[in-house]
Amino acid sequence: MNVVETIAGVRELVRAERRRGKSIGLVPTMGYLHEGHLSLIRRARTECDFVVVSVFVNPLQFGPQEDYNTYPRDLNRDARLAAEAGAAVIFHPAPAEMYPEGFQTHVEVERLSQGLCGAFRPGHFRGVATVVTKLFNIVTPDRAYFGEKDAQQLALIQRMVRDLNLDVEIVPLPIVRESDGLALSSRNTYLSPAERRAATVLYRALLRGRDLIAAGERDGRRVGEAVRGTLQAEPLVSRIDYVAVVDPETLAEKAALSGRVMLAVAAYIGKVRLIDNIRVVVD
């Protein structure tokens, strides 16, 4: 696996492939790859000739009390898994390569960054929008691949691409789950065995909401209350940041349910903050 640490180096590789008439796919990650990431890489390889995987733990999207320094990292493992999934190169820049001394330009998607996770992680989505814009400008991909687990991030990036007329197709892929329903996340490694068992409550709570809708409930408030009640019944849930019933594109709250609906939660299992969501089409 070719691991490139400089912007100039990855640009040179991409330009060479473009001269050969090849299409370029990008899978942005913070590393410590799991099956969710690998599903993105495999899809990218089926649609693109040359797949770049970025592995960059972005300091701009971490708050002062968050886990930037302890976020799991294993580049050798990532390189092996990415190669097996079909990636051609890993772009692994240092923070100083992406944000050299004097850096002072940021990208912000205003409204979509305010609610849900944005209400609890100030500045997080400005960091996301800034690094993704830089990656798009560096790699110039034809397509970029994102998972639906980070639903607010996905909606924000899709909006940013439209608003700024960026010449890239955003390809979303469904959440990949463990056999018991837990959404895959690099932060799952922080969970103790007991917390890991308890963490399935996020998905079970979302399924409770989905089942209510399937049974005919159309009041978004009642669906949200049922989801929250399921979370609160789990003793190892130490905090609930939000339970939301929203439009998956605009993230606006949906009081009367119809059309496309997303149920989204963020909760702490012990000290570990996890997010999850499911999408429902309401007839």
Rank of each mutant, 00 (worst) to 15 (best):
N2T: 08
N2L: 14
V4S: 01
G9W: 03
G9Q: 01
G9E: 02
R15K: 13
A16C: 00
R20Q: 09
G21W: 07
I24W: 07
P28C: 05
E35C: 03
S39R: 04
I41H: 04
R42M: 08
R43L: 14
A44F: 09
T46Y: 13
T46D: 15
F50A: 05
S54P: 05
V55T: 07
P59I: 09
F62D: 11
Q65K: 14
T70N: 14
N76F: 04
R77A: 02
D78R: 00
A82S: 13
A83Q: 12
E84N: 04
G86M: 03
A87S: 02
A88G: 06
F91K: 01
P93H: 02
A94H: 14
A94F: 14
A96K: 10
A96P: 07
H106S: 12
H106M: 14
S113C: 00
Q114K: 14
A119S: 09
A119Q: 12
A119K: 13
G123W: 07
G123E: 07
H124D: 10
H124G: 02
G127R: 03
G127P: 01
I138Q: 10
T140V: 10
F146R: 00
G147I: 00
K149F: 04
Q153W: 10
L154W: 12
L164F: 06
L166N: 09
P174T: 03
L182H: 10
L184C: 02
L184K: 06
S186C: 06
R187K: 06
T189L: 09
S192A: 03
P193Y: 12
T200Y: 12
T200K: 14
L202C: 04
L206Y: 07
R210C: 01
R210D: 15
R210E: 15
D211I: 01
A214S: 14
A214R: 15
A214G: 12
A215D: 13
G216K: 09
R221A: 11
Q232L: 15
L236T: 11
L236W: 15
V237F: 10
R239A: 10
D241R: 05
V245G: 04
V245H: 03
D247E: 11
P248E: 11
P248Q: 12
K254Q: 15
L257Y: 12
Y268N: 11
R273V: 06
R273C: 08
I278Y: 14
V282Y: 14
